[in-house]
Amino acid sequence: MPSKPKVPGLIKGLGVTMSTMFRTLKDGANTVQYPHEKETPPTRARGVIALHEDNCTACMLCSRSCPDWCIYIEGHKQLAPPRRAGGKPRQVNHLDRFDIDYALCMYCGICVDVCPFDALFWSPEYEYSEPRIADLLHDKTKLGEWMETVPEAPELEVGAQKK
């Protein structure tokens, strides 16, 4: 039985190559030229965790639930002035140290989910490689700086209760 002729198959294949080449020449390549153009990651992307220090009460829930134990928290109790005149000074937890070790972090988000006071937020920033591993331990101020990159919360649904 004669074998199928191979030449039309070759021409069809070359046709596909040529049409892809012309499409690339016309529309441009698919490449994102990294240092000069960067594609924005989705808003839900897990790049880095930011800390809103005012909301944090040093309850240690995030540190205890982190599977990697990469959050280091130190706090102490102190007396805050009374809220109304003539009241008693109240005891509050003051946050001394809140470090996240991004060398250990596995970006699972358990700390963000578990925080009862909404003090931790995801941010899609991913450009923070360091030549020294000690610099990957981000302290309280650095985590506060990441707050500026946190995207806006999504709109609540129609009919949702707003406080």
């Binding site: 994102v32 790049g47 991004y102 972090c105 490689s129 360091e130 030549p131 591993i133």
Partner: peptide, 22 residues
């Protein structure tokens, strides 16, 4: 001995490119 540490689990491909650029 390591020269650059790229954090992430896993890091985005652009994060690795940023490590290479660094």
């Amino acid at each position: 001995p390591v020269d650059v540490y790229v954090p992430g689990c896993p890091p985005r491909p652009e994060a690795l490119l940023e490590g290479i650029v660094l």
